[in-house]
């Protein structure tokens, strides 16, 4: 091949891949820009702090924000201890080459690939129909309290979905703690748990926090798992007990976009709700990225 042709092909190849890259970034900017442009108009303090009125055509989205926060809070309480313990086991407790470690890793990786809607089916089949009904039989004499869609079941379903996120982030944080720190703790006579509790976990706090934030961001955005496990379109009251149903931002967007009787009347509210949801997830993701970068820099300096 002549030099000229090679130059042309090089130019073409780089141009095409660069074009692909630019297209993707342009698409992201287009979507975000469109939503920000149309969503920011309707945003007001009143919109964020009042309940919807007049069949969702007026008022705000406070109950949906409240429900989302309540949901991810419950989810966090369930998933963080579980995820951290799992990561600690994989990194510190498991004997080398253990079959259990291999199986847990495989389970975590596959859990991350299970479609969100399948988690929804599981939440209905296991938490509501099985666990909820059993609780009702044992403690309420068969009366219906927990054997129905509820924020507790939605949160637990979401916790299972976000477990891999927390485990992976915590494992990464534990892995970068220098070996010498562990050995020093043992040399001072620390037991394994004391070493984990006083040496590893304090150093891994940043990583655990990163994982938690990413899990919360994911949990706040997923809708498919809560479709049948507790989300409701409109509730006159805020959820006060674990077995109440709840309103949620993503679910609110879905129903308003697909089942609104008057699309034009709800459109400004819909855009503003999407904007709030996006801002929420992006702020979370952004803080996770910043936090992670800071940890990595500190580690690089420490070495």
């Amino acid at each position: 091949m002549s030099r000229r042709w090679i130059n042309r092909i090089t130019f073409l190849f780089m141009g095409l891949t660069g074009l692909a890259c630019a297209t993707v970034i342009l698409l992201v900017a287009l979507i975000l820009g469109h939503i920000a442009y149309h969503g920011v108009h309707h945003l007001s303090w009143e919109f964020l702090t009042t309940a919807p009125r007049a069949g969702m055509t007026e008022g705000g989205i406070f109950p949906a924000i409240f429900g989302t926060v309540f949901l991810v809070l419950l989810m966090t309480i369930a998933v963080v201890p579980l995820g951290v313990c799992t990561a600690v086991y994989l990194q510190e407790y498991a004997p080398a080459g253990s079959k259990l470690v291999h199986a847990v890793r495989l389970a975590i990786q596959n859990l991350a690939g299970v479609p969100a809607i399948v988690f929804g089916l599981f939440g209905l089949g296991f938490f509501i129909e099985f666990a909820g009904r059993s609780v009702d039989r044992l403690f309420y004499g068969g009366q219906l309290h927990f054997g129905q869609p509820a924020i507790l079941w939605a949160a637990l379903t979401m916790a299972l979905l976000t477990l891999p996120t927390v485990v992976v982030a915590t494992e990464e944080a534990l892995r970068v703690v220098p070996r010498g720190h562990r050995e020093a703790a043992y040399a001072l006579g620390a037991t394994r748990w004391q070493m984990v509790r006083y040496v590893l976990l304090p150093q891994a706090t940043g990583g655990i926090l990163t994982g938690t934030i990413l899990a919360v961001s994911r949990g706040a955005g997923e809708v498919a798992p809560i479709l049948f496990t507790g989300a409701a379109y409109y509730l006159p009251e805020l959820p006060r007990r674990l077995n109440h149903q709840f309103m949620e931002l993503g679910y609110h967007v879905y129903v308003m976009a697909t089942q609104s009787p008057d699309v034009d009347a709800t459109k400004p509210i819909l855009y503003a709700t999407v904007f709030v949801l996006l801002t929420l997830t992006f702020l979370l993701n952004f803080s996770a990225v910043v936090l992670r970068a800071r940890i990595r820099r500190r580690l690089a300096e420490g070495r």
């Binding site: 993707v24 970034i25 698409l27 992201v28 979507i31 975000l32 469109h34 939503i35 969100a116 961001s217 706040a220 955005g221 997923e222 809708v223 498919a224 993503g250 679910y251 967007v253 879905y254 976009a257 697909t258 819909l270 999407v274 949801l277 996006l278 997830t281 992006f282 993701n285």
Partner: peptide
């Protein structure tokens, strides 16, 4: 920037497409 796309909830992508 591309990872930003991963952070957009799928319901928002669905909304945008619809």
């Amino acid at each position: 920037s591309i990872e930003l796309l991963a952070g957009i909830p799928s319901v928002v992508l669905g909304f945008f497409a619809l």
